[in-house]
Simulated assay, not measured.
Amino acid sequence: MDTLEWLNLTRHGESTGNLAYRAVQGTDAEELGIRERDADIPLTDAGREQAVLLGRWLAGLPEDQRPTVAVVSPYLRTLDTARIALAQAPYQIPCEVDERLRDREQGVLEGLTPRGIGLRYPEEALRMRRLGKFYYRAPGGESWADLALRLRGFYRDLGQDQPGGRPLIVTHDAIVVMTRYLVEQLSEHEILEIEKEPVANCSITRWRDEGGRLSRRSYNACDHLVPVDANRP
């Protein structure tokens, strides 16, 4: 990873899943009400607009900062975000898909609210509290530590394939957060404090090579999203 010149990450645009999550906050709902499987959740109209603005940001980058490749999660909302954004750039960016950039898998807890988990899987709710968010793995799902494991392999391969490159990663909030954990060599406590701030849709997080190490230049930046509501989670 430290062989890269720039590392750029963005979260997908607003999705119907994001709307469903906000709709049940503060209610007694046990389920999010999402009908699609996670991989098939689409963008909203606002999400597509955010992707256009992301593309305009790409178009305005100096030539020596332009991404040399885009690597994208295989989920619909990330694929469409990348497609829309890259279409705005006046230069060609090769696009690759890598399943290691997919969102964190929730296993049997997928689609449930915290209330739903407590009522339907009380033993899992207890285990989650005992183990903590970083190491808890739901049956059939992944822990945050599991994300770190698959991302270590992804970034190792990316550095080998793109030495001196400037990749743009189009992915999910958990991947953005765990990339900070890896690049900046943070502790469990530090990354869980950072994770309390939601990663905004189509926000920009960037690192640049400085003396052989990646140094963070921005995190969760939303200045390029001013024409839309940049405060949406």
Rank of each mutant, 00 (worst) to 15 (best):
Y121V: 10
G165C: 09
I169A: 00
T68V: 02
P198T: 02
V199N: 10
L126P: 01
L182P: 10
P74K: 03
M1Q: 11
R152E: 08
R150Q: 03
C222W: 03
V170C: 00
R206M: 12
Q106I: 02
L131N: 10
V176E: 02
L4S: 05
C202G: 11
E210A: 09
A20G: 13
G17D: 08
T10C: 11
D28Q: 15
E110S: 10
L131E: 15
P167E: 00
E63Y: 01
G165L: 06
R127E: 14
L76Y: 09
P167V: 00
Y136S: 10
A85L: 04
N18H: 11
A230K: 14
T44Y: 07
T179A: 08
G107V: 01
V52A: 05
G55E: 01
T44Q: 08
R150V: 00
P74Q: 00
Q162A: 04
M128G: 12
Q50K: 05
D40S: 12
L43I: 03
Y91V: 03
R216L: 15
N201A: 06
R102Q: 12
N8R: 09
R35C: 07
I34A: 02
R217M: 13
M128W: 13
R102L: 01
R66L: 05
C95R: 13
E210W: 05
I175G: 10
Y219R: 13
I117T: 13
P163Y: 04
R130W: 07
R56M: 08
M1N: 08
L126S: 11
E31N: 10
T27C: 09
A23C: 10
R180F: 00
R35G: 15
T16V: 05
L86C: 04
V183M: 00
A29I: 12
Y21R: 13
L86A: 03
L76I: 04
S73C: 06
R152G: 06
E110Q: 13
I175Y: 09
L192V: 01
E124M: 08
Q106N: 12
P139M: 06
L214M: 11
E105K: 14
R208Y: 11
D38C: 04
P114N: 08
V170D: 00
Y219F: 15
N201W: 01
R129Q: 15
E195K: 14
P42G: 04
N220K: 07
V226C: 05
R35H: 14
D64L: 03
E110F: 03
G159L: 04
S143E: 04
H224A: 07
H12Q: 05
G159C: 06
T27A: 04
V69H: 06
T113W: 07
H172W: 03
P42W: 03
Y21G: 05
W6P: 03
C95L: 13
I41G: 03
N18R: 07
D161P: 02
G153K: 13
G17N: 10
L76F: 06
E142C: 02
A39M: 14
E14F: 03
I93G: 07
L158M: 06
A148D: 03
T68C: 01
L214N: 11
D2G: 01
A29Y: 14
A82K: 04
R77T: 03
V69D: 02
L79G: 02
E188I: 07
M128H: 13
R66Q: 14
A148F: 01
Y21P: 04
L119T: 05
P94N: 05
G47Q: 09
T205V: 02
V108M: 04
L225I: 07
V170L: 00
A145M: 01
